[in-house]
Computed example of a mutant assay.
Amino acid sequence: MAKEIRTIGVMTSGGDAPGMNAAIRAVARACAYYNVNCIGFYRGFQGMIEGDHCVLNARSVRNIISRGGTILKSARSEEFRTKEGRRKAAKQLDKLEVDAMVLIGGDGTFRGGQIFSKEHEVPVIGVPGTIDNDILGTNYTIGYDTALNTVIEAIDKIRDTASSHDRLFFVEVMGRDAGFIALNTGVGAGAEEILIPEEDLGLDRLLESLKRSKRSGKSSSIVVVSEGDKIGKNVYELAEYVIENMPNYDVRVTVLGHMQRGGSPSCFDRTLASRLCVKAVELLLDGKKNVMVGLINNKIAATSFDEGLSGDHEINKELLRISDILST
């Protein structure tokens, strides 16, 4: 028989993502609705180890749905990777009488939660919060939509400058292991080329594409580069290669960096966070554990950690085909 859940803990871990505050709010208010206590842990797993916490209720999370970042802070904990660290975290949960946890983060957060749950029999539900959208078991992760809109807005402004000065801009976006941001914003912003980790375009093909653009009459170009692209060591090396081989191009590099993680979350991300986290609380109260909640075909679905962590969310190759057609 499943243990009665009287107190649920919540934390955010890994890279911050717009919509995490909306997720925290949803957990706290769902707990209030179902007459369950809610405790928030600061700085992810490290806060669990140290017992660094606050009591959350319906009123303490007011007015945070529109804020970027996370009021609970976020961090990566090397100590939690050890058995002793996880043992300390379990003792803190016992001390605070926390019966179950909602973990908001990416695959590293879910792996930590999976191990912790198996070792200490604490029910855990994962909520995907990462701008990279690289988690199996959901079509969209919290923060991804906002990041796309942030990048699109930036590229649109860069396009104005590129057109005014007949320049080629390499725009690097986040995505060390996945090219979802680069691919979707590249298509949405009308980029001439999109470079992502999943597809090795090659330097020769990149040059040929840029030369083709020149021949077609284009005086400026945008190349969107995922930070994990494998063609060169980094975006600056790519730019240098083009300068050496196409000296008539005036080449510039813009690295958007951490601005992609910030800002007020979009309506989509606020709604997604709310839907996923209410379901996470309800699953715990129904005795479920060791699953992540996600959005699949616009319906909330639960996927086991084993299945969700077993592979990669595949890139949409149809978008690559569309990009090739539209960049003509």
Rank of each mutant, 00 (worst) to 15 (best):
A280N: 09
D250V: 00
C277T: 01
Y249D: 12
A273L: 03
K279F: 02
N248M: 14
A239F: 11
I231P: 06
N234R: 00
L256M: 07
P247W: 08
I231Y: 13
V251N: 15
G232Y: 12
K230H: 12
E237F: 07
G263I: 02
V235H: 02
N245T: 03
T271P: 02
E240P: 02
Y236K: 08
V251A: 14
G263C: 06
V253S: 03
H258A: 04
A280T: 07
D229L: 04
P265D: 01
S266D: 07
G232I: 04
L276M: 06
N234S: 01
P265M: 00
P247E: 13
L256W: 12
A273H: 06
H258L: 05
L238I: 12
V235D: 02
I231N: 14
F268T: 01
N245D: 05
R261P: 00
V278C: 12
T254S: 14
E240N: 09
R261T: 00
Q260N: 03
L276I: 04
I243V: 13
N234G: 00
C267N: 14
E237N: 03
T271F: 15
D269T: 14
V278E: 07
E244K: 13
L272Q: 14
M246Q: 07
Y236V: 00
I243Q: 09
D250I: 04
C277S: 11
G262T: 05
Y249P: 01
H258E: 12
Y241C: 10
G263P: 10
V253D: 00
Y249G: 05
N248L: 15
I243F: 09
R270V: 09
N234C: 02
P265E: 00
P265V: 00
V253E: 05
G262L: 01
G257M: 06
N245Q: 09
L272V: 10
V235N: 01
K279H: 14
G262A: 08
R270W: 06
Y241R: 14
R275I: 13
M246G: 06
K233L: 14
R270F: 03
L238S: 09
G262S: 02
S264A: 10
T271S: 15
V242M: 06
N245V: 03
M259S: 13
L276Y: 08
N248Y: 15
H258F: 07
